[in-house]
Structures are given as C-alpha cells and as structure tokens.
Design a protein around this nucleic acid. Structure first.
Lengths: 231, 231
DNA sequence: CCAAAAGTGTTCGTGTTACACCCATGT
DNA sequence: ACATGGGTGTAACACGAACACTTTTGG
C-alpha cells in the first residue's frame, strides 16, 4: 500500500482532479404509479431541496459496493436489482466542489416498500416521477435520464423482474408495464407475447382477491435480466 | 473560488477518494475491418502493453472537454462523433492508484485515418478489434464493451454516420454494417430498408471507379444520431 | 344473480426474408 | 466483348394490432 501510494502521488499528483460519487435512482411502482425514492438533505445551502441517495466512493470500494452501501445505510433496502445508468460530470454540477457522479438505476419490488426507519440524517420519501419537487444538483436531470432508460429497457429486456414481486399475476405485470410506459396495452396481445417468450412460468398457485375469479401466479424463469424483444 | 474551495475541503475532505479519468475507444473501419485506435505507453511498469487514449479529468473541465482534449492532443482527430459508454471503477483496475474511468465511444470517418504525427509520448496504431494485443489496466474489457455497444446501436440508430465519409455509396454503407456486425446482409433488402427510412438522400453525384458502373453518392439527412430501427 | 376481474382466438395488414437477373461503365 | 460492381421486384411468411365475449369467484 505504501509503495502504491507513493507511485500514486508521483503520477497523479492529487488535489488537482475530480473525485467520484455514486447516486442511486431507486424506482418502484406504488398505487399504479412510478415512484422514485428521494431524500431531503439537511445541508443549509440545499434547504428544502430533494436529492437521490448517494455518497462519495471510498478508496477501497468498487462502484457497486458504494451503491450497496448507499442503499443499506440510507434506505434500508437490500438485494435490489441495480445497473449503471450514466456518469454526470459537469464542472459546476456540485456547488461544493468537483464531484463526478456515476448514476445507478435501481428497481425495488412492489412488496418491499417499507423503508428503514434507521436512516440517520435525512427525510426520505417516495415521489411520483412526473411530479418531481425542486431538486439539488443536477438530480432532476439524472432522474429523468433514469426514467427514460427504464422505459426503454422495459421493451427489450426482462428488467421488469426487478420491480415485480417474486410471484405475480399477469394483470399486475401488465399494470406495471402500462404505468411505466405511460400508455395502456391490449390484454390479449400482452399475455400472448409474454407467454410466447417463455420468460415466465406459472407457479401453480392462485391469487384470490375479494370477489372475482382467482388469478394464476407466475414467476420469472431466470434470475438475471435477459435481452429479449418484449413489446 | 476560495469560498468554494474551503467548503469543498470541509465537506469532502480530499485525499480519501477516487479520482476521475476519461478513456476514449476510437473506432474506424479500415480495409473492411473494424479497427480501434491504441497507444503504447512508455511507463516502464506497463512496457509493451497497449491502452486506449485517456487522461485524468482536470478540475475545471467537463468530461466531454476532457475527451476532446485527449482526441486532439493524443491523436490529432477533431470533430469526431463521441458518446459516453460506461464507467469502470474497480478499486484495483489501475495499479497506480484509485482511478475511476469514464469510457467514451468515438467514431472516425473512413476518410480521416491520418493520425497526427505530433503525438508526444506514445506509439499509436490502428488495431483490428478481433485481434487485440495484451492491454494495460482493464482496457480490453472496455474495448469489448465498446464494440458490443457499437454493434447494438448500429441496428437501432443512425450512428453509422460517424464512421462513414460525408458522401458514400450504398455499397460502402452496407459493407460497414456487415463488417461491424460480422455477418453478410442482403443487398436488395438493405437498400430497400435504408431508403424507405428516409435517413439518407442522394447527392446527385456519382462515384466512378475503375471499370464498373458508377455508384450514386448519398449523404445523411440529419447531422445528429437518431433512433430508428434499421435492421 | 350480480359485480368484478380473469382468461381466451381470429382476422387483417404490415414488415421481413429469400432469392436472380439486367445495367452502366472502363479496358 | 468482357469483366466489374451497381441497381432492381416479387412471393411466402411471420409478426403485431385490433377487437368482445365467456368464466370463475365472492357477496
């Protein structure tokens, strides 16, 4: 480590370069609407502004580890599907210094909305993506980029797995698609397509609601996000 | 600046965080083959290893500006189509210290292959992407990710504009597609599709070769990369 | 028996694929 | 006249879009 550090200093003389943060855009569908998880900072300069959860990357930590740390310490969420979105690096995006942010997209199952009450510093809340409040830094831009990416991936990958519970009905799945995409889908065509793709399978169980026909429950065959033309 | 600096120090105490570099994967099609631009570093520790051109990001510089600086100072290329690819941040990816690299994809017109002879430090060369040499850092991984992204975008955007000359024949265009995608395409179907999309228009000029029928020259209608289903 | 949501097929039009010959030019 | 690469059409098929009624359950 000493040797590494000395070389480091020699080659990349510190103090004259940008440093790295991760910011995590966490989405979930709540009450049939796409929501994003926002925190309110207590820095006086940013009073009243909301931000997506984030943190600076520690020297010995990978980007993914930093994301996981942000999720567990700031939101109490675990085992969340994440993927890298893009990196935002305008020199003046952070008023406190030169911070380049690697943004991540994270999806939370509809059945995991309970937020940890152990978040230390900040207010935290689910906010509908099409009614974003005033936000700090360039976080509005980041959230919009994330929403756009989510919509795109929904149509050509099995990313919806991240936002659906482990077992779900076809109507739930369709509803998720409709609310993320923002337009209605044809029930028969949707079911035909999804079933023909073979990405999900029936569990054999049924979901009984109040007074209607029970719906068959399905699960995803694969646990990883696959690339297939869905819509 | 003083105020900003003091706040910066206070909030983000330096010296304990990762710093930011950009690396640029420059592609071109040469002799019907997809090539990537590589430099050979003269750092003794990396002797004989190739790397894509890159640099640390200066404190007052945006990521895009850093990319442009790398391209002009290290390769002599200007006005190149670039887009952000992904960010690579494993703690040990750089043996000299904690450097997180934002990788960019860049495309160079086939008629601009002449490299600046004014590159100061390094050897520089076009290398076929499927015959990559031993490379420094995680640059092989980065080049592969870039090639994959290029292939994908070719089929759903007009990104090919970046790699074609301003005026080109349909056969040239098809050849570029075939060599990046790695498989042959049907001539009639390709022409039908591209022309039906309306993304290119004839210039009225013709390209005369040795002893064959002259080919009509086309240009792209729009100067920006658009999203359309091409193949 | 009524309300509520689940489930199920067919038709039509459009887009994709596969495929082979004639054309314009230079030597 | 021949070699070289440019340019063109059609038929079979697959896929996506539009569309309405029957089934199962609980109250």
């Amino acid at each position: 480590m000493t040797k590494k550090t000395s070389r480091y200093k020699q080659k990349y003389a510190r103090g004259a370069h940008a440093i790295v943060a991760v910011d995590v855009v966490v989405f979930s569908v709540i009450n049939e609407e796409l929501h994003v998880l926002l925190t309110q900072t207590n820095k006086p300069e940013l009073k009243g502004l909301w931000a997506v959860p984030g943190a600076l990357v520690a020297p010995d930590e990978s980007l993914e580890e930093a994301v996981e740390r942000v999720l567990t310490t700031k939101t109490g969420l675990k085992n969340v599907l994440t993927e890298q979105l893009a990196t935002f690096g305008d020199p003046d995006r952070d008023p406190f210094g030169r911070v380049v942010s690697v943004a991540y997209l994270a999806l939370v199952h509809a059945d995991k909305h309970v937020l940890s009450t152990t978040h230390e510093y900040d207010a935290i809340a689910w906010v509908p993506v099409d009614r974003l409040p005033r936000m700090a830094y360039d976080h509005k831009k980041i959230v919009r980029a994330a929403a756009q990416r989510l919509r795109a991936k929904l149509t050509y990958s099995t990313i919806a797995r991240g936002i659906l519970p482990k077992e779900f009905t076809l109507t739930q799945m369709q509803t998720v698609y409709e609310h993320i995409l923002g337009h209605p889908l044809d029930k028969r065509n949707f079911r035909k397509k999804i079933l023909a793709l073979g990405i999900i399978e029936p569990t054999g169980k049924y979901y009984r609601q109040q007074r209607a026909r029970p719906a068959a429950l399905y699960r995803f065959r694969s646990t990883k996000t696959e690339i297939v033309d869905i819509l």
